[in-house]
């Protein structure tokens, strides 16, 4: 399978401080890519530049071989983002939330209704479709956050800490949903601090620190490489590569 997304020499600086330093990587079609790094490593900035929420200073981003600037509308319709913050309207029903965000991608009529139903069923919220998110539990809000991002059937889905602060039941549901989504053909870029989630879900892992990519390889290869150095799991590998010093004030 070919590259769905390609990032070349991407850079970004804030107030003269370089937060992303000319990184290169690609996302292969059909994979689940784990994108990890300590706080302040530059992950969120990279993702924001890729999804066109933040301007890049330099570098290029290609989608299916085309510069995204040239095919912005097509590109935006092809991607989905599950933001770390729960990005939903708390004062309109779950159904209306999904319907609204899905309609922004040009879907309407029966097609729109079908998609909304499918997304809500997929996230286990169909029974609560008329409820207001303000009254939902944390796990339900997280699932609705995902439903809003997948209803338009994106080809490439960015998930930024989609399981932060929820109970084990909801987490299990979300993890299984991600696997099903991927099996249906959605390519996923998964950002998380939960190493066990990355380990369980991802085929390939990119580790970023100080604005640079310090490791980019298949999960199995990565584990094999560091097994010799005494690392038992991904967390050991992560700490070995990024160190144990606290990253205060670097966000």
């Amino acid at each position: 399978m070919g590259s769905l997304l390609e990032v070349k020499a991407l850079t970004k600086a804030y107030d003269g401080k370089q937060v992303v330093r000319g990184i290169n990587f690609s996302v292969q079609e059909g994979e689940i890519l784990g994108y990890i790094g300590p706080n302040g490593a530059g992950k969120s900035t990279t993702i924001k530049m890729i999804i066109d929420v933040e301007k890049k200073d330099n570098g290029e981003i290609f989608y299916c071989g085309e510069k995204i600037g040239n095919i912005m509308k097509v590109y935006k319709k092809a991607i989905g983002v599950v933001p770390q913050e729960i990005a939903i309207y708390e004062d309109i029903s779950a159904y209306d939330n999904v319907k609204f965000f899905c309609s922004l991608y040009g879907h309407k009529g029966d097609d729109l209704k079908e998609r909304v139903k499918e997304a809500l069923e997929f996230t286990g919220l169909w029974e609560h479709r008329k409820g207001l998110p303000a009254k939902f539990s944390g796990g339900m809000k997280r699932r609705l956050n995902i439903a809003c991002s997948i209803a338009h059937s994106p080809k490439l889905l960015f998930m930024d800490e989609p399981t932060a602060g929820i109970d084990p039941q909801s987490r299990k549901h979300i993890m299984e949903s991600i696997k099903i989504l991927n099996a249906r053909g959605t390519t996923i870029v998964y950002v998380s601090h939960y190493m066990e989630e990355i380990e369980a879900l991802c085929n390939r892992i990119i580790i970023m620190d100080h604005g640079e990519i310090i490791e980019d390889m298949e999960k199995s290869q990565l584990k094999l490489k560091f097994e010799k150095l005494g690392c038992k799991n991904l967390e050991d590998i992560f700490l070995r590569l990024t160190g144990t010093a606290l990253r205060d004030g670097e966000e």
Binding site: I51, V53, P83, Y105, G106
Partner: peptide, 9 residues
Amino acid sequence: TALRLLFSP
């Protein structure tokens, strides 16, 4: 929800 509007078309 601003982020959602920004990354949608």
